[in-house]
Design a protein around this nucleic acid. Sequence first.
DNA 1: AGATTTTTTGAAAACTTGATCGAAACAACC
DNA 2: GGTTGTTTCGATCAAGTTTTCAAAAAATCT
Lengths: 235, 235
Amino acid sequence: MKKIVLIEDDADLFSLLKYNLEKEGFALVGSQTGKGAIDLCRREKPDLILLDIMLPDSDGLDICKGIRNHPELVGIPIIFLTARASETDRILGLELGANDYIVKPFFVRELIARVKVHFRGQQSGAKLLKAGELELDRTACRVKLQNEDLQLTATEFRLLEFLMTRPGVVFSREQLLDAVWGHDRAVTDRTVDVYILRLRQKIEADATAPIFIRSVRGFGYSFNESVFTTMAATA
Amino acid sequence: MKKIVLIEDDADLFSLLKYNLEKEGFALVGSQTGKGAIDLCRREKPDLILLDIMLPDSDGLDICKGIRNHPELVGIPIIFLTARASETDRILGLELGANDYIVKPFFVRELIARVKVHFRGQQSGAKLLKAGELELDRTACRVKLQNEDLQLTATEFRLLEFLMTRPGVVFSREQLLDAVWGHDRAVTDRTVDVYILRLRQKIEADATAPIFIRSVRGFGYSFNESVFTTMAATA
DNA sequence: AGATTTTTTGAAAACTTGATCGAAACAACC
DNA sequence: GGTTGTTTCGATCAAGTTTTCAAAAAATCT
């Protein structure tokens, strides 16, 4: 269950949002003052923060800055809720590190839809592909087997990445050349074989009985989907 | 350089946005019809899509659905631009897979700010970055190694700062030039090598076995995250 | 079982890439 | 306007990567 921190001083709006967000299945923790907001977030480690800008005791923009300065909280999406509708206010809010800026008065259901967008976005941007003991980190360009770093070359990496992002799908050598080598390639399709070989030497425990990469005689290769589970990125 | 596809039938708005986005350093590819939109995206592989909903020949919502169904295009952020302001329209757009929904008329600078939000990797705003013996003070523009001040030039500093704020992430020379040199650069990507070399001469104890800056052959460079720990800001 | 096709494999040749250096262009500062 | 330090570029070298070829092995078909 996703946890949301809500900082909003208007008691009516606060309870309206609390009611609606909880009805949608989110865990809601809130405060009607800005003072302890950063400590609250550090304690709760929410998945998203809804932040009013004009608070009686502090400035939401400062809280946003504070959150972006905290190493533990960097990366948590922040949505501003505010009556400040001017162009400069909007731009300032977004540039300070907010992920969305919603001007009051707003539709509650639109707010909920926008909240969901941020959770959806996190999933689709999965940067870490896990298949059993095999882990591929797309941002760090690293592959680990049983938590040991493997040394893959750029082409080996791209080939494995391509196959792992489409588990179960069989690709012809032709398709793999197009996808990994590019359309303007001038390469024999035997080259793919060699790369599959080398990948297997690096990732398969027993090269005669491959677990990860499956040869489909007459068609091509595919990444075994049975060994596959995707995890969301932690960073 | 980030590539944006713009689908918008209004010729005035189209050229206004094209002008402004290109001025911001984005590569812009566009179409004033919806017909070939998905093929255009498959060809161009943009980093973001700006999509009008009401097009003369097709429905932006259908294009959005089509993009979300394409395995190669899933995950590309889509921002709707539309005059349809009703609550149901907004919610429909967001639920169909859009990442943002901007109602016309809008401020061009707000649009640009929202576009940038999607490109901004969530990064630490911490003022003091510590990686083992290496310390970078962003406010004082100072770098210390084992508590000894290092003399870095401005470009060296910005490059190190950029890499240190995104530990573990691999960047291509292209990306580093965009980020550190700016988009109006006219510089070979070999220049990056030279700067990495000089940084290493200054910060690495043994230049043949770098601890801090990792070369990732075929991809680029990254700051080694294993050596990294962030300290809370003092301010 | 024998013939045929397809895949796997090893090894060597051709090619890229990244590190390094020196010198030229440039800018900033007095 | 000269001096200093910074930035960029092109060339070279070494190391590593990619590709091809051809032979061996395995699967499929008749």
